[in-house]
């Protein structure tokens, strides 16, 4: 086996499950439900290689703190903090709204009429286009790994068609860059058809499942799709300890 053809996931046992890591140029979709600790996995995958990490729910500080707590290497990670930008936009929007009434009482009506009768309006731009940020950063990326945590944010802000189009483009750029792109998405909230489409785009699909067994929960990581590597389809039970994800038992399906 030629080692260079693969990129390590950053989790040893997962590399084993995948028999060496993920092939270069692959797009990976990771699906998970509540309680699957998918957000920990996302960060653990960022521990090896040069990483570009898009965060939409956690801030940069939160990510770095968590990684420190697990004792992970966070030196080669570049974080694009959409979460902070977005909350700034939300806050300023809210402030604006609140201030309309304050403004209104402060501005004299005569003054307002004066302003309204002269000049031209500046067309104020809407909020920042985060999907464009994503698309542009991926296009020029020199990183080995790109992690998007998560697609849920983009799917709430943009239409599914727009997101799909961007991801298609991202997949092509990534293929040319020989890197790996990892996309995190919550299972079961974007519709079956869309999930199916996403599974179609991805070269590799991993799914985290939590099953209740009596009074305990069992967690499984399944490799549901691995393009051109049918052998790598498999499932592993996992647990999370102070080092992060631990894969316990690997079962090959094929």
């Amino acid at each position: 086996m030629v080692k260079e053809e693969f990129i390590s996931t950053g989790i040893e046992k997962l590399d084993t499950l995948l028999e060496g890591g993920t092939p270069k140029g692959f797009s990976i979709l990771i699906l998970g439900g509540p309680g699957s600790s998918i957000e920990i996995l996302a960060k653990q995958l960022a521990t090896t290689g040069n990483v570009l990490y898009f965060t939409t729910e956690e801030t940069k500080e939160e990510i770095l703190d968590t990684m420190k707590r697990f004792g992970w290497n966070a030196e080669k990670i570049e974080i694009i903090d959409i979460a902070t930008e977005y909350s700034k936009a939300i806050l300023s929007g809210e402030q604006k709204r609140v201030s309309v009434y304050e403004q209104r009482s402060k501005i004299k009506l005569k003054e307002l009429i004066e302003i309204g009768s002269s000049g031209t309006p500046q067309i104020t731009k809407g909020g920042q286009d985060f999907l464009a940020v994503l698309s542009n950063s991926i296009k020029i990326s020199k990183y080995e790994k790109i992690i998007i945590n998560s697609l849920d944010f983009f799917l709430n802000q943009y239409s599914q068609e727009e997101v799909l189009r961007t991801l298609h483009a991202a997949k092509i750029s990534n293929f040319q860059n020989n890197g790996v792109i990892i996309m995190i998405m919550t299972r079961g909230i974007h519709g079956d058809v869309f999930e199916r489409k996403m599974e179609g785009i991805a070269d590799c699909v991993l799914e985290l499942e939590v099953l209740q067994k009596g009074s305990t929960f069992e967690r499984f990581l399944a490799v549901k799709k691995m393009k051109n590597y049918a052998k790598k389809i498999g499932i592993a039970r996992y647990a999370i300890d102070s080092d992060g994800f631990i894969l316990e038992m690997i079962e090959r399906i094929m």
């Binding site: 929007g93 604006k96 709204r97 201030s99 309309v100 403004q103 209104r104 501005i107 307002l112 009429i113 302003i115 309204g116 009768s117 000049g119 031209t120 309006p121 500046q122 067309i123 104020t124 809407g126």
Partner: peptide, 24 residues
């Protein structure tokens, strides 16, 4: 006759000139 550009007014009030909420 007074000519008034509503977009300037909304801009001055801090409203998004292209999108209004109910309050706006």
């Amino acid at each position: 006759v007074n000519l008034i550009d509503l977009r300037i007014i909304s801009e001055r009030l801090g409203l998004d000139t292209e999108k209004y909420t109910v309050e706006d």
